[in-house]
C-alpha cells in the first residue's frame, strides 16, 4: 500500500476533481434525472401541456405485449452477440498466436473491422445479404437456403446478430491476444510435461488464466449489445420484419422519436437503465468471484 497523499490546502483537492464532477453531473446525472422526470409525465398529442401521472407510464409499458416482445428480442440478441463475438474472437486469437511468420500483419488485418462505423457495418451486411442484389445471399440461395431476411424474422435476427458480432470481434480479439501473451510460456511447457495434450492445456491452464480478460469482455459486450447496436439494427432491418428485431433500445427510439410518445419512451429508458445496472451488478457479484487475477 502506498501512503495516503495529504493535501495541505483544504480547497485544492475539490478544485482538482471539480471538472470531472461537472462533466459527470452535466452529461450523466442531469439527463438521467430528466429521463426519470419525463417517465412520470404524460403529454397531450400536440405537445402543448403535460401532467404528472406517477407510474402510469411504467404500468402501460410493462403491460404492452410489444414491449414484452422487445425484452425477449433483446435477450436473444444480446446473448447471441456476446457469445458469438467472444467465442469467434477467442478462436481467432488462439490461432493467431500460432502464426510464426508476419504475425503483426495478421493482427493488424484482424483489428481493422473495429474502425468501421456501426451504420456502415450494417450497410455492408445489408448489401451482402440483400435477397435481390447481395452476393452472399446469392450464395446462400445456391446452397438451397430460402434466404429472405426481409420476410423471415429468424433470418433477420441471424443477420443483425452476425453484423453486430462481426463489428465487435476485432475489439475482443485485441484483448484476447493481449491476454494470451500475458500467460507465461513456462506454464504451458510445465503443463505439457505434466502430460496435458493441447486441448487439455487450453481448457485447464489457458482458459482459466484468461478469465480476467473474458470477464471484462463479457461486461463490455453485454453493454455493447444493449446500447451500441442501434445503428446496425437501424441500417439492416429497421426493427423488422414486424417487430422481430426490435430491441429495447430500438423501441425507445421508435416510441420517442418516431411516434413521439415521450412519456413511454422515457419510462422504457429508465427500465433499460435499471436492467443494465442490475446485469453489471450481477456480473461483478457472481461471475467475478470465479476470476483469479494473477
Amino acid at each position: 500500500m502506498s501512503p495516503r497523499v495529504v493535501f495541505p490546502n483544504k480547497i485544492l483537492p475539490y478544485l482538482l476533481v471539480a471538472p470531472q464532477l461537472a462533466i459527470t453531473l452535466i452529461f450523466f446525472y442531469w439527463p438521467a434525472s430528466q429521463a426519470l422526470r419525463q417517465s412520470m409525465l404524460r403529454e397531450d398529442p400536440f405537445g402543448l401541456s403535460s401532467k404528472f401521472v406517477w407510474f402510469d407510464n411504467f404500468k402501460k409499458v410493462l403491460s404492452d405485449p410489444n414491449y414484452l416482445n422487445s425484452i425477449q428480442v433483446t435477450a436473444i440478441f444480446s446473448i447471441s452477440v456476446a457469445a458469438v463475438a467472444m467465442a469467434t474472437a477467442l478462436l481467432l486469437a488462439v490461432m493467431a498466436e500460432k502464426v510464426v511468420r508476419s504475425r503483426g500483419l495478421y493482427r493488424t488485418l484482424m483489428i481493422w473491422p473495429y474502425a468501421v462505423a456501426p451504420a456502415i457495418a450494417g450497410m455492408l451486411w445489408l448489401f451482402l445479404f440483400n435477397p435481390s442484389i447481395g452476393s452472399l445471399a446469392y450464395g446462400l440461395r445456391w446452397l438451397g437456403i430460402n434466404w429472405d431476411p426481409l420476410l423471415d424474422g429468424e433470418q433477420a435476427m441471424v443477420l443483425v446478430v452476425a453484423a453486430a458480432s462481426w463489428k465487435q470481434i476485432s475489439y475482443n480479439f485485441l484483448f484476447f491476444v493481449a491476454g494470451l501473451q500475458a500467460i507465461p510460456k513456462t506454464l504451458i511447457e510445465a503443463a505439457a510435461i505434466d502430460g496435458a495434450g493441447e486441448n487439455k492445456r487450453f481448457w485447464t491452464i489457458v482458459f482459466p488464466l484468461l478469465a480476467p480478460t473474458t470477464f471484462f469482455l463479457l461486461v463490455v459486450n453485454t453493454v455493447y449489445a444493449f446500447f451500441d447496436t442501434f445503428g446496425i439494427i437501424h441500417a439492416v432491418t429497421g426493427g423488422g420484419p414486424g417487430k422481430a428485431t426490435e430491441t429495447m433500445v430500438y423501441k425507445v427510439y421508435n416510441d420517442g422519436f418516431v411516434n413521439l410518445i415521450l412519456g413511454d419512451s422515457a419510462a422504457q429508458s429508465v427500465i433499460l437503465m435499471v436492467i443494465v445496472i442490475a446485469l453489471t451488478a450481477i456480473q461483478f457479484r457472481y461471475v467475478e468471484r470465479k476470476v483469479h487475477y494473477g
Binding site: L187, E189, A190, A192, G197, L209
Partner: peptide
C-alpha cells in the same frame, strides 16, 4: 517424442506453478 510422453519432470527457474 513430445514432452508429454517422455515421462520426465521439470523444475523451472520461475517454478511455473499454475496460479489458479
Amino acid at each position: 517424442v513430445g514432452p508429454t510422453e517422455r515421462d520426465i519432470a521439470m523444475v523451472f527457474q520461475n517454478y511455473a506453478l499454475y496460479p489458479h
